[in-house]
Simulated scan of single mutants.
Amino acid sequence: MTSEYAYDAVVIGGGQSGLAAAHHLTGQGLNTAIVEASEEATGSWPRYYDSLTLFSPARYSALPGRRFPGDPDRYPHRDEVVDYLRSYAAGLDADIHTDTLVEAVSASDGEGFAVTTGSGAVFTAPRVIAATGSFGSPFLPALPGRDEFGGDILHASQYRDQGEFAGRRVVVVGAGNSAVQIAAELAEHAQVVLASRAAVKFVPQRPLGWDVHFWFALTGFDAAPLGRIVKAAPTQPVFDEGRYRAALAAGKPQRREMFTAFTPEGVVWPSGDRSAVDAVLYATGYRPHLPYLAGIGALTDTGAPQQRQGLSLTHPGLGFLGLEWQRTPSSNSLRGVGRDAAYLVRRLWPATARRQEHAR
């Protein structure tokens, strides 16, 4: 038997973006459901690598309405973020449906949306927010010879710790925070090369004694258009107190220009040199994970949402959260998603529409 649930708003995804959206929706008095595929509303955080540490202090890493506990100037670890999100979800006045995978969203003119799940349950609402992030769609650039490579190829989303790589020859691909952090960690136990198309760009973590996020807040860097300067750069900066810069300077890991092809035994460098390699780990980011919207024409041919600042260009009442550069440099981060959620809720559900809805 099919179960049907009617809500004012349905949020697909119970990670940081979905939780922030639910905070603002319920704050407007809207009956809200969060539909989350995993067993609890903590997003992809439990699946990140063990040593992951935020590069923003706790005071700048909170969702709206609830401070991050503990020393506000420390840099929280992965498990602290998981605990924080778990507590945040428990404090929301929203119905959270876990272990519930969304398979499809359908739309009817003037009648809102129907969200169908793998169990057969259907959630209906006049407004839907897609907040499933990108962890489910890791990006691995295609290079010649990849299918013939005899070693391991994996993405940073599959990396947990350095144990399985001890003593091996590893190439980490990327130049961002995760790539550098993973490569430096592995280099303590393995032979590691950090391969990237552009050199790593380091930014001091604490210029003039204050964390860089203090300066972001003071200058308004996180707000467009100032942040677009960074978006146009060939690589995103790596925040560092000196540890990672020193590691690269010492050759642990060694940094090389991106290889051009795979061989059965390893990789080919731009110089033509070849290296034997046991594993290649891509820290090359993600793409939006929105397969459930493919059937209604809300996505481009490449699976990207057709949206502007989180508002669907194809379906009134449909919104997106947690997209990289959705509105600002921090749109897909703990420190920025709350602002985007507030902006989106205001535009998806204007005050006049709320009054009309509740007057029925």
Rank of each mutant, 00 (worst) to 15 (best):
R287D: 07
A9W: 03
L311A: 02
Q16E: 10
W45S: 00
G91Y: 09
A224M: 14
V102A: 05
D278T: 15
D147F: 08
S134H: 09
Q254V: 08
P141G: 07
L344I: 07
T100H: 08
S3R: 06
G151V: 05
R67E: 15
F123M: 02
S119C: 06
H23R: 11
T2N: 02
G15L: 07
S108T: 14
A33P: 00
D50F: 03
V81N: 07
R66V: 13
T300Y: 02
R206D: 14
Q326I: 10
K231Q: 15
F221S: 06
D161V: 10
G272W: 12
R160L: 11
I182L: 11
G174K: 10
T300Q: 02
R360F: 06
S330G: 00
Q326D: 05
T53R: 06
R66N: 04
A198G: 12
R228N: 13
L92D: 02
G151Q: 05
R308I: 08
H189F: 15
R327E: 04
S38I: 00
E357Q: 11
P264A: 09
H77V: 15
L293S: 03
E265G: 03
L248G: 02
A187T: 14
V128N: 01
Y75D: 10
L323P: 02
R346M: 01
A90I: 10
G167A: 10
P225T: 14
N177A: 13
T314K: 08
G319N: 05
R47K: 03
G29K: 02
G163Q: 10
S3F: 04
T117Y: 05
P72W: 15
P207G: 13
F139P: 00
A224D: 15
F320M: 06
Q205S: 15
L290C: 08
S87G: 13
Y48D: 00
G322Y: 07
Y88P: 03
G29Q: 04
P72N: 13
R160F: 13
A41H: 00
G151N: 04
L30G: 00
A199P: 09
T132I: 05
A247R: 11
A250C: 02
E103V: 12
